[in-house]
Write a protein that binds this DNA or RNA. Structure first.
Lengths: 185, 185
DNA sequence: CCGAGCATGTAAGCTGTTACATGATTAG
DNA sequence: CTAATCATGTAACAGCTTACATGCTCGG
């Protein structure tokens, strides 16, 4: 049920489905993502529920853009969501399932390779978030606490992303060391 | 697609759907979970694919138990999964979406309340994992590196869980401090 | 006797993914 | 001319949740 609410958050300024997809793929992807085929019907439903309105405007390229913006009822629905308490649905980590059963296979080199790949994956994500942070720093010399009220909370999610990736990387590093000292020394 | 593989991992020893549900709810829930209504059909499919076999045995209470165990093909399918590389499907964090748009609402006390609730949530999860760890420590005096080969990897997922919860808690603590010093000082 | 735990499942519905379908403009 | 980007969607399918359905046994 969260996609509807996140879309409400995004359309504080008028945006098209295509615009929203690009935001997911750039700045929002560390905590949410969605395919266009999911975004378009979701936006339609917001309009049907009177939480958003549409306006068609001609585009430079391609067909008309449909710009969605939230209604007062939409803003209220968003605020209500913020008051329902933290949305902490349990998470499925496939890679932890793999580690849990890693002992089934006796090839310790494969285990090392697994953790090295995982570490590389999180390093890449970490670097991407650092690049986003560098952009913010360049725009605001008093980053992070000199940010405006809206940006202050948005930066907190970036901070969370950076912390979580570091935590994954640290676990990988430590696991690699433990496997090495158990089987190679 | 991971549930099938995780079930294959679990049925190294013969287990019923009901048994498996209990394992998810106790020791496995920090990285995976599933409902009985999802587990039963999934086990049937493993049998249809010749990755598992069933044996009905009478139960003390209630109807016969159906004990599932994996075939050689099932063991191979599990090992193949371990060799496909880390299963790192991107994760959706509803609570980060809420923080991202927290600025929509001007009530700073509500923001503090939100983070305090979130912190309490992760503290509870952390305490649960610490209890699991205490059980392991009681059973094995040389915990964690004196564990057997299978347990060694299983403990790694517990270590991951503890690290990740700590990371969430630290972020909450830090965010609470930042909100306080921004709006209350 | 009643509720909790044991033990099995089916069905409807929601969410999300992958594949398919269309068509304009612009850069190479 | 061709590929990429812009811009909209639909349809089929897979995965997961919630609700429903059945029946036994044991403790209070």
């Amino acid at each position: 049920m969260s996609l509807q609410h996140i879309l409400l958050g995004i359309i504080a300024e008028p945006k098209s489905g295509y615009d929203i997809k690009q935001e997911f793929d750039s700045s929002l992807k560390h905590f949410w993502f969605a395919e266009l085929s999911q975004i378009y019907p979701a936006l339609k439903k917001l309009v049907a529920d009177d939480l958003a309105r549409v306006e068609g405007v001609p585009s430079d390229k391609g067909p008309d853009k449909k710009l969605y913006s939230r209604t007062d009822a939409g803003t209220q629905a968003l605020i209500d969501w913020l008051h329902t308490g933290p949305a902490t649905s349990p998470v499925r980590h496939g890679f932890l399932g793999q580690v849990f059963f890693m002992g089934t296979q006796k090839d310790r080199e494969a285990a090392l390779k697994f953790f090295k790949e995982l570490k590389a994956h999180y390093q890449a994500r970490y670097a991407a978030l650092q690049a986003v942070e560098a952009g913010w720093k360049a725009q605001c010399p008093t980053y992070p606490d000199g940010l405006g009220d809206d940006d202050f909370f948005m930066q907190m999610t970036l901070d969370a992303g950076l912390r979580f990736q570091r935590s994954y990387m640290d676990w990988c590093t430590n696991s690699i060391d433990r496997i090495k000292s158990r089987y190679h020394d």
